[in-house]
Design a protein around this nucleic acid. Structure first.
Length: 593
DNA sequence: GCCGTTTTCGGCCCGACTGTTTTCAGTCG
């Protein structure tokens, strides 16, 4: 949580994430104080916008608060507050409104079913200012005298406290884990309900393919809602039932994920799928457009407000069509300008998995992979790829059994031999070359020249300062035999933060030198992420989508990598491995003169 | 606090579920 630093640290450089956190905190305070909800929403919207900016807010600011107002959701007031944070490191407004608010109050808001109104009453009527006090009071039956509270409320709050504690210790689930789990639930529901299910699909942030998922939303079209909900709450993966009504139920799964399921009549499928896919921001914008046309839009469908007449939309496409919009692919529905683009029919034609012709980051038993080059190649062929780049680690990464130049030459012999086998498929000689801590490369130039392509990355000294790691990477990217920079930020989802690398500078250098940047689709990486990849496209940096597979199954990474690319608005022409190898090869820095 | 194919003022999305209620408030998504 954000903390205002003392004057000694007033030069503190606020990151986007920290600024966003501070605005969320402000929104919480305003909400507890009973400020009009729209002001609260404005701060949350601003926080969200800053968090998903994809570049340092300072780069946009450039010394003038007005520049910040280009960001949708940021107006005069908030722009000036951001400027104050950048220039002074502090925010007077926050100091003012947070005065006298016990810090424990914010933890109370994390408890399910405890919202701002409840928090305010607990605080003012019972002097409860933190979770420990609330737990004690609930156990002692001291909440029930409050108007609107009863014994059940106390139980619910105690259960909520437990849930909040569990949630705090766990984190959002990676797309790479949530996606297969959702498929598992869908299969189990189909098995249990058979023909009663007309349609079933995971919606929510999973359908939008966010890198991490908070909970699962599953949508079912059926005329037998009771049967569906009964089956759902009895699935083997259910640990607890949170709620169960006539159209929806919510469960906690054994793996800790919350799963919500909604049932609707098939005639309402389109509006329901649209609604439950979100995002909330996207939906709010759609409803505003509907209102302007005299229509009310909900998960149940459209309603003509004047005549109170329902208009149903069986297909999701119908919803957008009715509003005069181009169909917006789920991955773009984040309320960050896609609706304006859909109005003018200017949405990008997003890259698809089937557009990929090859994979340029994979590993074999030569370094830390678990399968032979032959096995990996056959797996790639089975997935319809035309080429597979084998990019085992270089010697500097000892832990991954990195290759010496001598072993590299042996590996080349094996690849040459394998390549005699196919006329429609090719194994490429690649390498994942260490950029050492001092910016030098792990192989001499004469070795680098022998590869079909060279991919560089950092695995050590990831905690270097921004200046140091940026200079180190830039030096590598300027090397004429370096073609691709892999998993640029080095983040591991839920495990390791991004390095301090100045991506804006890296994008600039990549564009200037013709170096390709990677979207690494490995479940734990997804690096570049969607926001960074979007920015890279804006600058004009070529992108490659790789799986970073260490096994045939690992090639699923291409699917997740494409997901990030689609969220970034990337098209076929932005992604170099949509090219046949002959074409791609000509574009490589080493081959272009 | 933000924003503008009705608006620089006056709007700002809509509905389900729960618990404690005899008609609704709070919370959530």
């Amino acid at each position: 949580m954000p903390k205002q630093k003392s004057s000694a640290a007033s030069e503190k450089k606020w990151t986007n994430l920290e600024i966003a956190d501070l605005f969320l905190r402000i929104a919480d305070i305003l909400e507890i104080q009973g400020e009009i909800v729209f002001k609260v929403i404005a701060y949350r919207r601003a926080a969200d916008a800053i968090q998903h900016l994809g570049r340092d807010v300072r780069d946009l600011w450039r010394g003038d608060a007005k520049n910040l107002r280009e960001i949708p959701g940021i107006g005069k007031e908030i722009a000036e507050k951001i400027q104050e944070l950048i220039t002074t490191g502090k925010l007077k407004y926050y100091a003012k409104i947070s005065k006298g608010i016990p810090v424990g109050i914010f933890d109370l808001l994390q408890i399910p079913d405890v919202g701002p109104k409840t928090v305010k009453r607990l605080w003012q009527e019972l002097k409860i200012t933190d979770v420990a006090k609330l737990e004690k009071a609930a156990r002692a039956g001291k909440l029930r005298p409050l108007k609107g509270f009863g014994a059940r409320s106390e139980e619910k709050i105690l259960a909520g406290i437990e849930t909040a504690r569990r949630k705090k210790s766990s984190t959002r689930v990676r797309l790479g884990a949530a996606y297969p789990f959702a498929q598992e639930i869908v299969a189990a529901m189909r098995a249990a309900c058979g023909d009663a299910i007309q349609n079933i699909e995971p919606a929510g942030s999973l359908r939008r393919r966010k890198a991490t998922i908070g909970d699962l939303d599953i949508l079912v079209a059926s005329n037998a809602p009771k049967k569906i909900l009964d089956a759902f709450t009895q699935l083997p993966m259910v640990r607890d039932i949170n709620e169960k009504g006539t159209t929806k139920a919510s469960i906690l799964a054994q793996n800790g994920l919350q799963v919500d399921l909604r049932v609707l009549e098939p005639s309402r499928w389109g509006s329901a799928l649209q609604y439950f896919t979100g995002s909330k921001e996207h939906n709010v914008e759609l409803r505003q457009i509907a209102l302007a046309q005299g229509l009310s839009l909900s998960e149940w469908g459209f309603k003509e407000i004047k005549r109170d007449k329902e208009i149903l939309t069986p297909r999701e496409e119908d919803v957008y069509e009715k509003l005069g919009l181009q169909y917006v692919p789920p991955e773009l529905r984040e309320g960050i300008g896609e609706i304006a683009a859909a109005r003018t029919k200017k949405l990008p034609r997003l890259v698809e998995l089937k557009d990929l012709k090859g994979d340029l980051q994979t590993h074999s038993t030569w370094s830390d992979g678990s399968f032979s080059i032959e096995q990996m190649a056959e797996a790639a062929r089975a997935r319809g790829l035309k080429y597979l780049g084998v990019s085992d680690h270089s010697q500097g990464l000892g832990i991954a059994r990195g290759l010496t130049p001598a072993r590299v030459r042996e590996q080349w012999k094996e690849i040459d031999k394998l390549n005699k086998r196919w006329s429609d498929f090719r194994v490429l000689k690649g390498v994942e070359l260490e950029i050492r801590a001092d910016g030098t490369l792990d192989f001499p130039d004469d070795v680098l020249a022998g590869f079909d392509y060279v991919l560089v990355s950092t695995h050590s000294a990831l905690k270097q300062t921004r200046e140091k790691i940026t200079a180190r990477v830039v030096r590598a990217l300027e090397h004429p035999l370096v073609d691709i920079f892999a998993h640029p930020t080095g983040r591991l989802i839920n495990e390791r933060e991004e390095s301090a690398l100045d991506l804006e500078e890296v994008f600039r250098v990549a564009k200037a030198t013709g170096t390709i940047l990677e979207i690494d689709g490995a479940a734990e990486r997804l690096d570049l992420d969607d926001a960074h990849a979007r920015r890279a496209k804006e600058i004009g940096v070529p992108i490659v989508i790789d799986s970073d597979a260490h096994s045939p199954d690992g090639m699923d990474g291409l699917f997740y990598g494409v997901a990030m690319a689609r969220r970034a608005g990337l098209e076929l022409r932005d992604v170099v491995n949509c090219l046949e190898w002959e074409e791609l090869s000509k574009r490589l820095k080493r081959n272009s003169k």
